[in-house]
Each structure stands twice: as C-alpha cells, then as structure tokens.
Design a binder for these strands. Structure first.
Lengths: 130, 130, 130, 130
DNA sequence: GTGGTCTAGACCACA
DNA sequence: GTGGTCTAGACCACG
C-alpha cells in the first residue's frame, strides 16, 4: 500500500483546516487504518506537526466526538470508538474510492492527460519518491 | 485525452467556489486549453452553468484580472492575456502534473489503495462513465 | 506636515469606494506612513469610520493582498508586507508627487486659476480649517 | 492662466467616463472658458481624442442637454446654452475652488508635503512642462 | 448585451 | 474578537 501520514494538512487548498482533519480521520477509520481503540495524535502534537492553532485541532476532535467516531478522555487522549461505521465499512469505502476516481479523472482531463499518460506519470512520481 | 468541461464546480468539496474557478482557469491556461485571446464564459453564463451566484464568478474573474492572467473589458467580456506564462508553458505543465500526481498518490494512500488497485479503479470509473 | 487620516472616503467623487481605499493604502505605503508590519484598521472599524459596508473594505483589502502589498491573517488582521517597494521608496515618492502635481495643475487650469491664485486659495483653505 | 485641454479623460481614475465629460463641461462653463454659443467638440472627434466609445460621449452630451446646459442640433453640433448658470457663476466657482483646495490639501497631507513643499513642487512641475 | 459597484445579511473559520 | 464566503438584489457604465 502507498504510504502517507494519517493526517496531513494542506494550507493552500482552501479546504477548511478542521474539515481536512475530520475527513482524514473518517477516511482512516473507514479504511481500517485507524482501528477501534487507536489513539489519535494529541491536540498539541498535531497542531505542531500541521502548523496550525491547537484550537482548530481541538474543534475537529470535538466534532468527531459529537458525531460519535472518537471519544476524548481528559488527561488520556482521544481514541477511535469501536461500534461506529464497522458495518457500513465496505460500502463507504467503495463510495469514497469512486468519488475519488471521478475527481482524479476530471482533473487529469483538465491537465490534458490520457489515462495511460496519467498512469505513467504516477509511476514516475512513485519512483522519484522512493 | 480525457474529456471534461473547462470549468466545473464541486459544491461539496469544501474548496471555495471562486477558488475552484480561479484554479481551473489557471490550469486551462497552463495546459494550453485556453489560449491567449480566448474568451471566458460570460459571468452570467458560468453562473447559470455552475449553479452559483454571478457575484461569485465575478469575484473569481476579478482575481484573475488583478493577477494579470485575464483582462476584462466592460461590455465585451473577459479574455486570456497573451504574455503571461507563455514561455514557461512546458515547465509549468510538467510541474502541474507532478504536483497533481503527488496529491493523487497521497490520497490513494489514505484510501488504502496500492497503485495497481488505483489504476484498476480508474479504469472501472472510466468504463462506467461512458 | 499637513495632517490627514490615513484613509478617508469621498462618497461624492465618483471614484469607486474600494479603489479609494486601495489607492490611499498604496500612497501611505509609498510615503512611509504605513511601514512594513503596520496593521491596517480592521475591516469592520474602517467600515464604520468611512460609513461603508464591510464587504467593500474587505474587497479593497483583498485586492491589496492579491497584489502582494498586504497579507491578511484570518482572526488576526491585515498587515503591510515588508519586501515590496521598500528599496524604491524614494523614487516612488518623487514619482507620486510629480504625478500629483501634474494633476493639480491640470485641474487648476480648468478652474481658471493661475498658480499664484491657486496658492492663495490653498492658504485661505488652510486658515479656514484651523 | 494655466493651460489645459477643455476635456481630457483619465482612463485610470475610476471615475465614470461620461461623468468626467459632464463635469468638465460644467466646469468650463462656470469658469467662462466655454461661453454661451460655443460649440463643443463633435461626438466622434471627442471619442477619438479621448479613446472612448462614441456612445459614451453621446450619452454625456445628452445628459447635458437634458439638464439644459447645452443644446444639440442634428447636423450642426452641440452648443452651450446662454441663460443657464450665468447668475450663480460666481458662487459656484468659489465653491468649486474651495472643494478642490480641500482635496489638494488632503492629498498633499497623505504625501507628506507641507504647504511650502507643495508650492515648490508645483513650481518645479510648471517649469518642467514648459 | 457585457461587466462593475455596493449593500444587506446569513453563516463559517480561525486566534 | 478577527477576516472569509456566499447569496440576493438594486442600480450603474460601457459597447
């Protein structure tokens, strides 16, 4: 599998920071990358890593807590909850992949790439990054 | 080449609408899809097509104007400017493709896809869309 | 030196409000009245002072941001950027004064004033304002 | 008296073109520069001189006609009307000069000029232009 | 017909 | 508290 940090913030994308955090945690849960019981980065640590204000991280975690995906225990940390989203895992994931692929194809089209050119470029990038 | 409209808006991505327009115009310029002198859609038409408020389109065009990529003539329309980025076309495009590929790989990683799985999914989507 | 507020809006001049703001900020920068790092009035405060809509102020600040003269930080404020125009300060200022004088002479000509009449009138105004 | 063209358009000032024309004609009338019976430039000629669309000139002349300052005779030209504004000439002119001086003092203040510096600069410009 | 300016006001994101 | 985004709609300027 392709390796990436669990949460990485893109400051220039225009997507609200807290939303990037929420989305990426949900994604990591749905793909099994974060399993029930897993501990999230602390608010402060993520704030430092991502160069953002701790309040923003905190708000994202709170939203995840309210929606029931994580549970925050004061003095201990924030943990993935077990019972949520396990059943709909498969469907969700498939849907996420579909949507992602649509987006990729649209963007590639704008860049003037055919599918084979896209694949070639991706392989190049992958080689470079190693 | 993969076919897409020059500008298409995703209302659910979290990326500001005006920013999507700006980015896509810049992309179209860098790939030569919009050439110097090309006329952009009128403010009102794009607003209708994209289901957004004309002010929002206007704001995007204004930013492009300030940044020097287009020139707006009242009563006439908005046009791609000639001298910007023409020389660096090739380099720009390569850079845009690289950045795009990095983004795709990162996102695919978060979705738990290997490169071959990604490619398979993309082909599926392409077939579906036909 | 003659005293004036950094930004003052003339509602009856026909010059777009946001443009008056942009021009006056640029002027204040070029004359060193606003120095790198200086904070502009908040959007809301200037809107109140100038009796205009906050959106209009915001639009002016955004243009200055795009053009690179200020940097806006959400939740913090809008600040003059350091690297722009610092070196060419002297030349810029001289140029601004020249252009301004040309304008004054042209307008005075249309008003049928000779230079000495103009100077006399200016002195009168200055006395009145005290 | 300082010499200037009767009507000169500033494309970069942001002031509506038709308004610049109207204002300058009114000014020329109030200062006696355009006397009753004087013929204005033709629509086409002014359009060419000022690099603007004839429609715009036409609209300005029409406004002046409606307000009673000029009379347009098809096939002949546009002429200053006699009876208007003769009486209020003096008061109007004084008011215009006052407002102009206030504007000049405010702008000079922003440029960091004292009155004597301003006068010196104006004299410099005048010498240059000769 | 084209785009431009401004307002009013709702709601969001970040420090 | 700061600024940002978007909408709705009125009215203007220019070709």
């Amino acid at each position: 599998m392709l390796e990436t940090a669990v949460i990485s913030i893109d400051h220039s994308s225009g997507v609200p920071l807290y939303r990037q955090i929420v989305d990426q945690v949900l994604l990591a849960v749905s793909t099994g990358r974060l399993k029930p019981g897993s501990r999230l980065q602390t608010v402060r640590q993520l704030a430092i890593d991502a160069q953002i204000n701790p309040n923003t991280v905190s708000r994202a975690y709170r939203e995840l807590d309210i929606r029931g995906f994580v549970r925050t225990r004061r003095g201990t940390g924030t943990f993935i909850v077990g019972d949520k989203g396990v059943a709909r895992d498969e469907a969700r994931h498939r849907e996420a992949v579909e949507q992602f692929c649509n987006q990729v194809l649209a963007d590639a089209g704008r860049l003037g790439l055919s599918l084979s050119e896209l694949v070639a470029s991706l392989q190049d990038r992958l080689t470079e990054r190693r």
